[in-house]
Design a protein around this nucleic acid. Sequence first.
DNA 1: TGGCGACATGTCAAGGTTGGAATGTAGGCT
DNA 2: AGCCTACATTCCAACCTTGACATGTCGCCA
Lengths: 171, 171
Amino acid sequence: MSLRHALLGLLVDKPASGYDLLKDFAGSLANVWPATQSQIYTELTKMAAAELITVTDAGPRGRKEYALTDAGLAELRHWLTEIPPNRPQRSDVLLRVFFLGVVDREQAREYLRGLAEKARQEHEELVGILERTDWEGGDLATYGRLALEYGLRFTDTRREWAEWAVDRIRT
Amino acid sequence: MSLRHALLGLLVDKPASGYDLLKDFAGSLANVWPATQSQIYTELTKMAAAELITVTDAGPRGRKEYALTDAGLAELRHWLTEIPPNRPQRSDVLLRVFFLGVVDREQAREYLRGLAEKARQEHEELVGILERTDWEGGDLATYGRLALEYGLRFTDTRREWAEWAVDRIRT
DNA sequence: TGGCGACATGTCAAGGTTGGAATGTAGGCT
DNA sequence: AGCCTACATTCCAACCTTGACATGTCGCCA
């Protein structure tokens, strides 16, 4: 149900069409809450019906620009402060770790080395974003920076853990 | 689709009924891949139809004990080594961080303090598991230990990040 | 022997998610 | 004028997940 709130959050900044929002989801937000085109358009329609957003402008090619209503902003604030952030985290990576005993040790180490390498790569990508972005702007920059820092620390921890795990599997 | 592989992984250790597996999912595996009763029974039926598992014993109260077939073990190994671990991570926590600008700074700090506290609690729970468990046993213990270590490091990183983030939001 | 709690499975509706197909327009370039 | 790319939306089938409902049995203890 959080796709709705992600869309509301993006519309705080400025009005946008489904197509605009789709691009936001392909960009920075993809790391936090991926969503597909069909999902976004469907959800926008439902949100308009619920009067959390309204169509404020129509452009060429049937473009509809949506803007937040007061009710939408209220809903976003409510979600931010009142709803417990509680969805249990699934991790197919960790699930595999649990069952690494069914392959031989060398394959297990290989898998963990792959995880370390992948974490390293992701970390570098985030460093790239850190360097390329201007963090002076408004709220989205401020809080986006916090989210990025989370990613930086998390990928680093993940790499260290995987390297530790490789070492721990001794013959 | 990984529920299937989680079930296969548990059945490597020993044959079990749906009820037995349900308890595994309520226990240690809940942190990694939560699943409900209906999902488990449905999936077991489908897996039996696909001959990844077979009914090896029938107990009282209609209990059906499933065991891995060769095809099941092969499928598990295949998934472990060949299939890229790729489901994108959703995080409603980070999503909220992105949009913290819509509430005032004190509320934002309060939210982050809550995250730090929650991370601290989770960390302590994991420490409890670490201390209460015998890590000498077979593969499940060995690799379960790796998964636990991941959790320990992750919750610690998360707490540090949240504390850092609180400090960073200055008036 | 009566009842309770744990054992044990099956089914269903509702909603979220994925991925793809279908459809069409506007604007820029050649 | 014709073509291509980017813009822009809608619909759908399939699958996963959640949570609830339904059904029934076994074994122990009072």
